[in-house]
Amino acid sequence: MSITATLFAQVAAFVILIWLVNRFLWGPLTKAMDERRRTVAEGLAAGEQGRKDLEESQARIRLMEEEARNQAANVIVQAEKRATGIVEEAKAAAREEAGRIKHAAQSEIEQQVLQARESLRREVGGIVIAGSERILRKEVDAAAHAAALRELESRL
C-alpha cells in the first residue's frame, strides 16, 4: 500500500477529464439552461404584457359601447320629437283644409238657398198674379194696376 507514480497519471487524467466534461457537458448544458431560463422569463413577461393589453382594450371597448349607447338614445329621442312634430303639423294642415272646404260648401249652400228663394218668389208672384188676374179679370186693368201688382210681388 504505497503512493506510486500512478498519482501523476491520475492527476493528468483528472485535469483532462475536467476539461472534456466542461467542453462537452457542463458548457453546453449550462448555456442551454440559461437560454431556457431567459426564454421562459421573456415568455412570462410577454404573457403579462398581453394580459395588460387585453385589459386596456376591454376598458376601451366598454367606453366605446357606452358612447354608442348614449348616441343611439339621443337619436331615438330626436326622432320621436321629430315624428310628433310631423304628426302635429299634418293635423294642423288637415284641420285648415277641412275648415276651408266647409266654408266653401257653406257659402255655396247659402248661394243656392238664395237662388232657390228668388226663383220661388218669382214663381209664387207669378201664381198670385195669375190667380189675381183670374179673379179680377174684368175689374182690373192690368196696365192700371201694374204698379200695385209689382209692389205685391216684391213683398212676397
Binding site: S2, I3, T4, A5, T6, A9, Q10, A13, I16, L17, L20, V21, F24
Partner: peptide, 23 residues
C-alpha cells in the same frame, strides 16, 4: 511508501476507461 518508478496499469486503465465513458 512513495515509489516514484512504479505505475499501476490497472488503476490507470480502468480510471481512463471510465473517464472515457463519461466523455
Amino acid at each position: 511508501i512513495v515509489k516514484l518508478n512504479a505505475w499501476h496499469l490497472d488503476t490507470i486503465f480502468f480510471s481512463v476507461v471510465l473517464g472515457a465513458l463519461i466523455v
